[in-house]
Design a binder for these strands. Structure first.
Lengths: 121, 121
DNA sequence: GTAGCGGGTTAGAGTTACTCTAAGTCAATG
DNA sequence: CATTGACTTAGAGTAACTCTAACCCGCTAC
């Protein structure tokens, strides 16, 4: 699979995939005789997971750590699980924040009401 | 009110408040005779709204537009309401994405299960 | 056979939104 | 009167992309 298809499949742009590789957040990617990257289904799965992690705000540093552990094999599973569990917790907090903001917006929008005049700021 | 208190009250760091002022996203801030900014309750309210907007991912450009409209007074209310309503929509989408990611994480975590061995990446 | 197209490759510059540092001012306190 | 602590500024540094420039390679069309 070539990079355009991989990008399509995982949700990350080709730029980002190359950037992640440079930044050491991907396992070794094999190259064809023409020097082009060859994406396996397994790699696509990995990229897709990274897509979700970054899309929900995980730092590159954390993602790098996560990949390092995965490359190391079974020994890192406990820490990998912890990283994901911690991230799930921050997602819950983020969701709460979004809900809170939706409330704030609803109130603010209502204050501009159908015929109300506001005087911000 | 001085900047440290303002920061405390609105949730934005003092750095960020100064940066927002430089970037034209705040109404004119009065200065004391010592050259220090003086934060009124009205300004704090404004900063707090901006805090919520940026915390939930609104771009500076959009926030700048919003402030500009607010400075212009009543004429901009319709567009301001639209900006907030649109933002509320994107928040709903974001929330859905978070939920989806929480699912993905739950599945991945389960795959590392209490005694399962995985072989990523 | 070579001109051009559509993919890929790299290094490195540009962007966004902060975040921090350096160097300085001023008011109050020991 | 020196130090402390809070503020001021300009500008450097950072994270995470995002894009540009310059290039290579294989293919079809003339």
């Amino acid at each position: 699979m070539r990079i355009a298809e991989a990008s399509e499949a995982c949700g990350l742009s080709a730029y980002t995939i190359r950037f992640y590789e440079k930044s050491g957040m991907l396992p070794k990617i094999e190259r064809g005789p023409d020097g082009h990257r060859r994406f396996t289904p397994r790699l696509i799965e990995w990229l897709t997971l990274l897509y979700w992690l970054r899309e929900t705000g995980m730092s590159l540093k954390q993602m790098r750590r996560f990949t390092t552990l995965a490359k190391a094999g079974d020994t890192g599973i406990a820490e990998r699980r912890k990283i994901l569990a911690d991230h799930a917790d921050t997602l819950k907090a983020k969701r709460a924040k979004l809900e809170k903001c939706e409330e704030v917006l609803a109130i603010k929008i209502a204050s501009y009401g159908p015929d109300t005049k506001e005087d911000d700021p």
